[in-house]
Design a protein around this nucleic acid. Structure first.
Length: 270
DNA sequence: ACTGGATCCTGACTGC
DNA sequence: TGCAGTCAGGATCCAG
């Protein structure tokens, strides 16, 4: 469940291992991911190419090479690691980029919800990214823009926050945490909300703090150096059904919002 | 236009 | 012990 903070953590951990390297070739073992992996297109973009940069847009990693870009989404269980070429492929390792130093960048993904896509041109113009809403810290994302985008709509705010067209990078964990921080019920319909200023402040602060802690290790997330994140220690409600609210000790509740679990304190959040 | 449900996938877990 | 059922959830697709 990598959300923006986890993807950013992967990016920061990976780039020092890729910087200055050249890709020698690409090796695909399992091409059935979210979308079929196009090995020939990957090779065209990566084989023989120099690593020029690694950036992030929402939950997508954008790897800039001298011949193009590789877009990568970790889905639910995706993992990118730089390992020695000698290391045996783990069960769900699907593809690798062999580097010029006897190491390789491996993508593994148990549930294969992830994606690895080669593009020649500007990756931001790829259909997957072109439709994305602003980054959380984009100055274009303002309380009035959120108010405008929610006017008259009845979608629950927990789902609204996870809409990548509204803001890129927020998933289930951070949606619950953001709403706890601002004291809003996850099932509040967005059209009724007036607290967009406080909500946007909470959204930015929660994500900033999570990035600073290396993301949250819930179940099996590991950064690319194998370390867990530490923000899960600071989770107030996510995954804490029945445990006391940190503010008022009322048991945290779980509610299904559009088929996803939202966690909240029925006393602090209204 | 908006909303919500189904879908993809595997492993961990629960109940019988 | 085994087996069936449920859940986890990002993003897309589709029906109403």
């Amino acid at each position: 469940m990598p959300e923006l903070p986890e993807v950013e953590t992967v990016r920061r951990g990976l780039w020092p291992l890729l910087q200055g390297r050249r890709v020698e070739r690409v090796s695909v073992r399992q091409s059935r991911l979210r979308w079929p992996v196009d090995e020939a297109a990957l090779a065209a973009v990566a084989a023989g190419a120099a690593c020029l940069g690694l950036t992030r847009r929402g939950k997508y990693l954008l790897w800039q090479l001298s011949s193009g870009w590789v877009i990568c989404h970790l889905g639910m269980t995706g993992c990118l690691r730089v390992v020695s070429r000698d290391e045996a492929w783990e069960k769900h390792a699907h593809l690798a980029f062999l580097l010029d130093n006897q190491e390789e960048l491996r993508f593994s993904d148990t549930r294969r919800f992830g994606a690895v896509i080669a593009v020649k041109g500007n990756p931001l113009e790829h259909p997957l990214l072109a439709a994305l809403g602003p980054e959380p810290w984009d100055p274009l994302l303002t309380p009035s823009r959120l108010a405008q985008g929610s006017r008259g709509r009845r979608v629950p705010v927990h789902a609204f926050l996870q809409d990548a067209k509204v803001v890129a990078g927020v998933g289930n964990i951070y949606a619950s945490e953001i709403l706890f921080r601002v004291g809003l019920s996850p099932v509040r319909e967005v059209g009724e909300i007036a607290e967009w200023d406080a909500l946007l402040t909470a959204l930015r602060r929660v994500l900033e703090e999570a990035v600073a802690q290396g993301g949250s290790t819930v179940r099996d997330f590991r950064s690319s150096d194998g370390r867990p994140g530490y923000f899960q220690q600071y989770l107030n409600v996510y995954g804490r059904e029945g445990l006391p609210c940190p503010t008022c000790q009322t048991p945290v509740q779980r509610v299904a919002v559009r088929g996803r679990s939202a966690f909240w304190c029925p006393r602090c959040q209204g």
